[in-house]
C-alpha cells in the first residue's frame, strides 16, 4: 500500500464522516423535524376506513351468521332464537377481540351492514375475560325465556283464535288444545353457532 493510498484512506474517512455529521447536525438543530406524536395528549386522526374494534348494532343485525362463517379465526359467537314475529332474536353476540385480527372480512360479509369497525384501538386489560365484547347486554337465558314465553303466548293466542274459529265452525266440538310447553328448547328455529 503506497503512501498516497494510505493518505487517501484517511482523507476518505474524514470526508465521509464530516458529510454524515453535517446531515445529523442539520436534523439536530432543526426543531421542526421532530415527528413524534405525543401520544396520550395528541392523537392521530383515524382515517375513515380504519379497522378498529368491531361494533355490532344488534337492532339491525339479522342473526344471519354470515360473519361467524367468514371469520378465519372463529372469534365471533352468537346464538339466536326465533321470536314470535318469526324474526330471529339474538340471545348473545360476543366478539373475542383478544383473538380478532381486525381483518375486516366479517364487516364485508355482513349483508345488512350492522357490523362495523369503529375507530377505537385502546383496550389494554389484565384480564382476558374483559377482551370479550358482549353486544347483548341482557342475560342470554332471560332473553330465551322471554322469547319462549312470547312464542308460547303467541302460539296460545293463535290456538285460541283457531279454536274460536273452529268453535264457530263446529260449536259442538269446543275443546281448547293444549298450550305448547314453556320450555325454550321447544321454540322453533333456535340455532347455536
Amino acid at each position: 500500500m503506497g503512501l498516497k493510498e494510505y493518505l487517501n484512506d484517511i482523507m476518505e474517512a474524514v470526508v465521509t464522516t464530516v458529510k454524515g455529521m453535517r446531515i445529523t447536525a442539520a436534523y439536530g438543530v432543526d426543531p421542526k423535524e421532530e415527528v413524534t406524536l405525543q401520544y396520550p395528549e395528541e392523537r392521530w386522526e383515524v382515517p375513515e376506513r380504519f379497522r378498529g374494534f368491531l361494533h355490532n348494532d344488534i337492532k339491525v343485525c339479522t342473526s344471519c351468521t354470515m360473519c361467524v362463517k367468514v371469520c378465519p379465526v372463529d372469534c365471533i359467537s352468537l346464538e339466536a332464537v326465533r321470536g314470535a314475529d318469526k324474526k330471529m332474536v339474538l340471545a348473545f353476540y360476543d366478539i373475542n377481540i383478544g383473538r380478532c385480527m381486525y381483518c375486516g372480512l366479517c364487516v364485508e360479509a355482513c349483508p345488512v351492514k350492522s357490523l362495523k369497525h369503529t375507530g377505537g384501538y385502546e383496550r389494554a386489560s389484565v384480564d382476558r375475560g374483559e377482551l370479550i365484547l358482549h353486544f347483548v347486554h341482557e342475560d342470554a337465558a332471560e332473553i330465551k325465556a322471554r322469547v319462549a314465553r312470547q312464542v308460547a303466548e303467541a302460539a296460545a293466542k293463535a290456538a285460541e283464535a283457531q279454536a274460536a274459529s273452529r268453535a264457530a265452525e263446529a260449536p259442538a266440538a269446543a275443546k281448547s288444545p293444549e298450550a305448547p310447553p314453556a320450555d325454550p328448547k321447544a321454540a322453533k328455529g333456535e340455532h347455536r353457532e
Binding site: 445529523t24 447536525a25 436534523y27 439536530g28 438543530v29 421532530e34 415527528v35 413524534t36 405525543q38
Partner: peptide, 13 residues
C-alpha cells in the same frame, strides 16, 4: 436529548 434531536424525535419528556 441529543439523540432525540438528531433522530428527529423528542427524547425523554
Amino acid at each position: 436529548k441529543v439523540a432525540g434531536d438528531i433522530q428527529a424525535r423528542i427524547g425523554p419528556n
